[in-house]
Structure formats: structure tokens, C-alpha cells
Write a protein that binds this DNA or RNA. Structure first.
Length: 187
DNA sequence: TGCCTGATGTTCT
DNA sequence: GAACATCAGGCAC
């Protein structure tokens, strides 16, 4: 597991994960992507699934850092989160967008649209990387889906805004993205 | 180019 | 029974 993530708050971890790599084994090949956009969610935050306490669905969010929390939304889409913070604290970082760096052809086969449309949204990247409820609770230190922490980005290359697509706690600036990256969803 | 809407399952009230 | 951390296609302009 990733002990470094256990020491960070949701917002710190969301910023920390920018620029880090995800490696997914798909069709017997490795697909690597860089995280370019994230959002932080915490149990003290009304927009978070963990806000109303531990439930069957949010159990993973209260578990160990470095695990994958997948949820299903709007009847058709999956979104994936990285659990962060100490065990027993419900916090996670939503991966909103990634940039493919290798295995792009594998991703392109799974997504009808090409270019930045491959992975510039939370549900799109889940489709592209073949993530569904079966991956919920997966340890991101293990194949077939691994998180590789890289050096933190410089402050000046990271932008902070309010989050997207939520109805509560809209004014909290817990969305982070890499400035100037084409794969970042609507700015 | 940009708004509007349909699709559709899980969770919680 | 309503809400929902979404996306893509269709239609109007």
C-alpha cells in the first residue's frame, strides 16, 4: 500500500497525485497514463459519499489509503477514486482526467472517440481503462492496476478551482489540474 | 457551436 | 421514489 498517502489530507493528496502514473494491465498489455486532474472528497465535506458516515458502499473509503474506490453513477457510468488519509477516516481523491502515455491503441479500441476524448472525464477514463465495480477495493500497489507515485509537481504548474458536477459544497476549491494540459476536462 | 435530453442502476430517505 | 461526483447524440441556431 502507499503509506505516503495515509499521511495526507484529501486536498493534499489530490494535489500530490497530479502527475503520478497509473499502470493498467489490459488485454495482456500495459497501459500507462498520467493523472492530470483530480478532486478531493472528505467525510467533513457535504459533497462526499462519506459525509453521511460509513455505509456498505462507502466502506472502502474508510479503509486503508492506496486502495481503489469505484462507484456507479447516473445509471451508466463508473468513476474511480484513490482512498487517502488514515484508516477510519473517509477520504478519497476522484480521478477526473488522465493523459495516456503508452498503450494508447488499447485505449482507443475501448473508446468510440479519439484524441483527448479518450480520457478527459471521470467516466470516460474508467471506460478506457476497463474499470468497473469488480475493481472496487483493489490495492493500487498490485497488478492489474497500479499507482506509481512520482515527484510532486511545482506549485506554478498546478491550478485550483471549485469542483464540477456536484450540488453541495460547491464553493470548496478542491479540484486540482495541471495547467495547460489538453486532457483536463472543462475549465 | 451550444443547449437539451435520454439512458439507466445503485444507494439512501 | 428521488437523487446522483456523467456522457453522447440530436436538434436548433
Amino acid at each position: 500500500m502507499h503509506s505516503e498517502l495515509a499521511k495526507l489530507s484529501a486536498s493534499e493528496a489530490a494535489r500530490r497525485l497530479l502527475g503520478c502514473r497509473l499502470v493498467r494491465q489490459l488485454d495482456g498489455q500495459a497501459v500507462a497514463v498520467i493523472i492530470v486532474e483530480t478532486e478531493a472528497y472528505d467525510q467533513t465535506d457535504a459533497a462526499s459519499h462519506s459525509y453521511n458516515g460509513r455505509t456498505q458502499r462507502t466502506e472502502v473509503m474508510f479503509g486503508q489509503a492506496g486502495y481503489l474506490y469505484v462507484y456507479f453513477t447516473y445509471g451508466m457510468h463508473y468513476c474511480c477514486n484513490v482512498v487517502v488519509g488514515s484508516e477510519g477516516h473517509g477520504a478519497a481523491v476522484l480521478i477526473r482526467a488522465v493523459q495516456p502515455i503508452s498503450g494508447t491503441d488499447i485505449i482507443a479500441r475501448r473508446r468510440p472517440r479519439g484524441g483527448v476524448e479518450l480520457t478527459n472525464g471521470p467516466a470516460k477514463l474508467c471506460q478506457a481503462l476497463g474499470i468497473d465495480m469488480r475493481m472496487n477495493g483493489h490495492d493500487l500497489a498490485q497488478p492489474p492496476f497500479e499507482l506509481v507515485l512520482t515527484a510532486p509537481l511545482a506549485n506554478e504548474s498546478v491550478a485550483t478551482t471549485t469542483r464540477i458536477g456536484i450540488s453541495k459544497a460547491k464553493d470548496v476549491k478542491w479540484r486540482y489540474y495541471i495547467k495547460g494540459n489538453d486532457y483536463v476536462s472543462g475549465i
